[in-house]
């Protein structure tokens, strides 16, 4: 009887030790999982900020007429390609720039003047949706570089947008616009 009790005690002991070990393993892996997730998000945020700041300050896109950051030149944006983006910023980076035009006010106008003004407004709004190519420049206000796979929008991308200026070379005016970049975390290879 004593022997059986002792055997039971040892079995209970072994079971308890196995339980503790399993419990400890689950907790350690869970902790690792959480810290990995946290560091992935931090890495992605850091990468998107780095990309934004690099784009805003690169001489390849900014206008020398202003010597300021965040003033892109429309001609430079038009000639840039996805390959250029990949060379400068790496693989799997999405870049989009859009410019706004000043919408003329048609208030107080009548008759033919109002009709002309409304036509101008329509043209301006259409131009804002037109993606720039070498054939339609400067009657366009959006720059996208999705011609190759390396510059397209991807499902797990994180996007960041900031206001910028775009210098319109033909009209020598500065427009308000938006720069949007998308980055993906981890190794793209």
């Amino acid at each position: 009887m004593n022997g059986q009790i002792q055997i039971m005690e040892y079995m209970m002991l072994i079971l308890m030790i196995m339980f503790i070990t399993l419990f400890a393993l689950v907790l350690i892996f869970g902790f690792q999982f959480i810290t990995l997730g946290t560091s992935y998000s931090t890495e992605l945020e850091g990468k998107s900020m780095f990309m934004l700041q690099k784009m805003l300050s690169t001489n390849l896109l900014t206008s020398p007429a202003f010597q300021k950051v965040s003033v892109f030149e429309d001609a430079k944006l038009t000639v840039m390609t996805c390959d250029d983006i990949r060379d400068i910023f790496g693989e799997d980076v999405y870049v989009e720039i859009s410019a706004f035009h000043d919408i003329p006010s048609c208030e107080g106008l009548g008759g033919y003047e109002l009709y002309e003004c409304e036509s101008t407004v329509e043209d301006v709004l259409d131009s804002e949706k037109t993606v720039c190519t070498s054939s339609n420049y400067p009657e366009c206000s959006m720059w996208k570089y999705e011609e190759n796979d390396g510059c397209k929008k991807l499902p797990r991308m994180v996007y960041r947008s900031v206001p910028v200026n775009i210098y319109r070379k033909f009209s020598s005016t500065v427009s308000m616009g938006v720069l949007t970049i998308g980055v993906i975390g981890g190794d793209s290879e």
Binding site: Q53, P163, N165, G177
Partner: peptide, 29 residues
């Protein structure tokens, strides 16, 4: 530990600074 809290603050600062500077430089009629 909220992921990337410092970076989010950095982004917001960049956003509002760029908004202000770009706005003041923008040509209108």
């Amino acid at each position: 530990e909220t992921p990337g809290e410092d970076t989010k603050a950095e982004y917001r600062n960049l956003y509002v600074t760029n908004m202000l500077i770009s706005l003041l430089n923008t040509d209108t009629e």
